[in-house]
Design a protein around this nucleic acid. Structure first.
Length: 422
RNA sequence: GGAAGCGUGCCGGAGCGGCCGAACGGAACAGUCUUGAAAACUGUCGUGGUUAAUAGCCACCGUGGGUUCAAAUCCCACCGCUUCCUCCA
């Protein structure tokens, strides 16, 4: 939800942002009008209500004889109050409907344009080069008997898989390493619920245009989350949190579920794009003025993980038109995937400024004791998809895979995943 | 899944149609006293909106509806919690 004060003081800024996002600009003018109408209706209601409260008080204090006449007079007032109340409620609902559709105001200076207009901030590492014909992760997964896609499909359908043996252990090792890194930086570990109520899903901004991406359980009115960001954002919903000792930081581990409704035919091979995967997500609640620095901190940790996994990657600053509705700025890290000769997204870190917290009603007290809306940020620290880059980057000629040194302590010192199939 | 009870401010806990945004206690904060602290005493002490305003006014006593001139208080639905039974990773 956008800031009502900003809507009143500088609607042009919001319009410019909507334009940059290639989102509906006319919503802003509609919202301004709805806001004026709402405030007028509210004023009328409050005036009438004050009158009614006074009148009711008189009845209470009146003698038995005087009451009937006063009550009669009150009845007429009650009619008016009821009508005014309904009008105010309708006006408010109309305004809400509009401002919940307006996307977050982007941070000035981010790239303009759509999906292809990102700016590369940096490239790190050397792209893996091989003196032999490299295999893709599917072939490696079969050869090493660590990814069983065929049986995943048999049990659950397309885009499902089993991680097996060293594959399963590699994922857990990576997650544990990520969790250690996060803990070292004072992120509190959280294992989060993956089913959430509609209010929480809506509050995080996932029920907009892309709601068909999300699994929904109608019998229980619960949504399956595509990231623990949802639960982490909902964690402090309707709370006044204490930020006087610094930001609240969490590292949320969860399985994630995505319908991939809009991506039929894309990335159908392997485990790059699947319905279910695991993720460790960083999440910060922070004062708005510190949000941009925090964003860089999250990015730095993501890079530390990527480097620990000895991956070659680049960092991009996503263009306005490609941001989720909650994000004001988004940095993605993309690792080089040898079999595709291209970069694929491994991490995504968004600065949601106060947008998400306003919807979820997460506030803090400033130095003067006044409540202010907090800012929220999130960023990926490890996901199942990372296995694709790790396996392909560190493959050997015989198909075995070298385990990056940083991961070995989590795998009993193992150095290679051996080939088990001819 | 069955039965009963309960949801009030940071916490505990009263209120069960009008004088209640809410007694009382605790915590917290400020001050007095003290070399300092504790204790004692005094004061402040929910949130949001409107406003120049810590004045006034409006909204909020789980959520949403209803009854009434008037609802924290009555009625209905939903959500949540507790206890007992049943079941169980």
């Amino acid at each position: 939800m956008i800031d009502l004060n900003l809507l009143r003081e500088n609607p042009e800024a919001i319009k410019a942002s909507q334009r940059a996002r290639e989102a509906d600009e006319s919503l802003v003018d509609q919202a301004v009008a709805a806001d004026v109408a709402w405030r007028k209706a509210l004023q009328e209601f409050e005036a009438l209500r004050a009158e009614q409260n006074a009148s009711a008080k008189l009845v209470g204090a009146a003698s038995k004889e005087d009451r009937p006449a006063l009550i009669e007079a009150g009845k007429a007032l009650a009619e008016q109050v009821k009508a005014a109340n309904e009008a105010a409620n309708e006006a408010e609902a109309a305004l809400q409907a509009l401002i919940w559709q307006i996307e977050n105001v982007v941070i000035e200076g981010i790239p303009a344009g759509g999906e292809d207009n990102f700016v590369v901030i940096k490239e790190v590492g050397t792209k893996a080069a091989f003196a032999f014909e490299p295999r893709d992760h599917v072939a490696l997964g079969e050869l090493l008997d660590i990814i069983d896609i065929e049986r995943g499909v048999k049990v659950s359908g397309s885009r499902f898989y089993f991680l097996k043996g060293w594959g399963a252990r590699l994922e857990l090792a990576m997650m544990n390493m990520a969790l250690d890194l996060a803990s070292k930086h004072n992120f509190t570990a959280l294992v989060t619920p993956t089913l959430v109520r509609p209010e929480v899903m809506a509050g995080t901004g996932f029920l907009g245009a892309h709601s068909d991406e999300i699994y929904y359980l109608p019998a229980d009115e619960l949504y399956l989350t595509g990231t623990s960001e949802v639960a982490l954002a909902g964690y402090h919903r309707d709370e006044i949190i204490d930020l006087s000792n610094g930001p609240l930081r969490y590292a949320g581990w969860s399985t994630c579920y995505r319908r991939e409704a809009g991506s039929a035919g894309r990335d159908t091979r392997g485990i790059l794009r699947v319905h279910q995967f695991n993720k460790l997500e960083m999440f910060s609640y922070i004062k708005p003025e510190d949000a941009e620095n925090e964003h860089l901190k999250l990015l730095a940790l993501e890079e530390e993980m990527l480097q620990a996994c000895e991956l070659s990657y680049r960092v991009i600053d996503t263009a306005a038109g490609d941001l989720g509705s909650s994000a004001a700025r988004k940095y993605d890290s993309e690792a080089w995937v040898p079999s595709q000769q291209t970069y694929r997204e491994l991490t995504s870190s968004s600065n949601c400024t106060t947008f998400q917290a306003r919807r979820l009603n997460v506030r803090y007290r400033d130095e003067n004791g006044k409540t202010q809306t907090a800012a929220t940020l999130n960023g990926t620290l490890a996901t199942t998809r990372w296995l694709v880059a790790i396996l392909e980057t560190h493959q050997q000629e015989d198909g075995s895979v070298r385990i990056p040194a940083a991961l070995r302590p989590y795998l009993g010192g193992q150095e290679f995943i051996p080939v088990v199939k001819a």
